[in-house]
Amino acid sequence: MTDQPIYILGVLFFLVFLSEYLCKHTFLKHISSSLLVIILGAIFANIGWIPSASDSSPVYEGVFHYIAPASIFFLLLGVNLKALKKAGLPMLFAFVLGSVGTMLGVIVALNLIDYQSVFGANAEAIAGMMTGTYTGGSANFNAVALHYEVYREGAIFTGVVVADNIITALWMIITLSLPVVMQKLRPHASIQSGESHDHELDREVEQIGPMNLSVMLLLGAGTLFVSDWLAEALSDQGLSFPSILILTTIALVLAQFKTIQAIPGAKLLGMFSVYLFLAVVGAFCEIGALLDVGAHAIDIFFFTTMIVLVHGAFLILSGLIFRSDWSIIAIASQANIGGASTALALAKSVKRNDLILPAILAGSLGSGLGTYLGFLVAGLLGA
């Protein structure tokens, strides 16, 4: 029964409800709903109540392909373009620093294990894959893996994928807490002085009826369709332009019209979509599958962990040196490790609507930059 799409979808809805309820009515109110839904998704997947990464479901693919981009669209409808001027350059600067931290992390991690024994002839390719995925998300990982045909090495490839999923979920939890912790250790002046940030309530409340809901869903579905169609049409002409960037552009244009701004429902649909996405991120945190890899499971997990820890340490140190906004540091890191969708989710979770657009732009940059850096690292190590 657990492989039935309607059952899986129902459980995901329940996890969203449960995380909201627990955060509102229990001692867990000090934990954000975004953090709790990841944890609940991981628990349910690891005890077998919903499929995990290795038993993936079409529902999960649907969430990644449709729901995550839809969350970006809906939340962008509330974005003020003035925020880009204030936070855009600091975010991109932090993102570039995070990319440098990732490359350093790969080099350090390789030297902490006997990588020739663990990865064999695939060591350089896997280093490139990890550089790519921790620069801007899993699309880069897959691009490098396909080129070097690492997917043919079943056990090693599975082990790296599972370790990546686990670390990505854990890093989301860490970056959710990072701004609060670092603000206590090294307060950032802009936050301390109370500059105007959009600190809206965590639970979005909107008066929405069937007509408004249908209009908002029509806008979202139409934009997803047009974005995919245009990306495919441009690809046929030899032009590579990610559909997520087209979607972002359309959403930003629509967001400037008062008629669109007046339609309720965007915040509600955006946050609900984010929670569904994060529940699936948690479900991909599969501990059992990593243990099934065998003797090298610990080495693979250690290798993956060290890459992210070095990346995080380098970025936090940079934040201390440049006296950065800790929310920008956390979101930039998440754009590196998880990509645009998780960066957006984090920006929304820490109540920084002014950083939503910069987060998406950083994540989109990573989607392109990560593949190039991945091939660069793999080529240099293999030279």
Rank of each mutant, 00 (worst) to 15 (best):
G132P: 11
S177M: 14
Y134K: 02
K184V: 12
P179V: 10
N140T: 08
A139I: 10
T168Q: 02
H147Y: 15
T175C: 09
L170Q: 03
I156V: 12
L146N: 14
G132Q: 10
V162H: 02
A145G: 11
T131W: 02
V144T: 13
D164G: 05
N142A: 13
L176F: 15
S177D: 09
Q183I: 03
T135H: 01
T135Y: 01
L170N: 04
I167F: 01
A125S: 15
I126W: 08
V150L: 04
G132F: 07
E149Y: 03
I174N: 00
Y134H: 10
I174G: 00
G136L: 04
Y134V: 08
N140K: 04
L176G: 14
N140E: 09
N140S: 13
E153G: 00
F157R: 01
E149L: 08
N165E: 08
V181Y: 09
T131N: 10
S138M: 03
Q183V: 04
A169F: 06
G128E: 15
K184G: 11
N142V: 15
L146C: 01
L178N: 06
I166C: 09
G136S: 10
T168W: 00
G154W: 00
T131K: 01
A127S: 15
L170A: 12
V150H: 05
R152M: 08
L146A: 13
S138W: 00
A155K: 04
T158C: 00
P179W: 07
M130N: 12
M130P: 11
N165M: 07
W171N: 01
V160C: 02
V161I: 13
F157V: 02
N142I: 13
S138L: 05
P179D: 07
V180A: 14
K184W: 09
T135P: 05
I126R: 04
V160I: 12
S138P: 06
A163G: 09
M172R: 02
L170C: 11
W171F: 04
I167L: 10
M129C: 15
A125Y: 13
G159W: 01
M129S: 13
G159Q: 03
A155V: 06
L176E: 08
D164Y: 05
K184A: 15
V144F: 07
D164T: 08
E153Q: 10
M129N: 14
T135C: 13
F141T: 07
W171V: 02
R152D: 13
T131E: 12
H147R: 11
S177W: 14
T158S: 12
A145Y: 05
A145R: 05
A145I: 10
T168I: 07
E153Y: 07
L170R: 02
T175E: 01
I126Y: 09
R152N: 12
A155R: 03
S177L: 14
A169K: 08
Y148E: 11
N165F: 07
V181F: 12
M172D: 03
V162M: 09
Y151P: 01
N140I: 06
T175L: 06
V161R: 00
I174M: 04
Y134E: 10
P179R: 06
T131I: 13
I156Y: 00
E149C: 04
T135M: 08
R152P: 01
L170V: 14
R152G: 02
T133Y: 05
T133K: 04
A143G: 06
V161Q: 08
S177N: 13
F141S: 05
E153P: 00
A163N: 08
V144Y: 07
G128Q: 14
M172T: 05
N142K: 07
T133V: 14
A145W: 03
V160A: 03
I156P: 00
L178T: 10
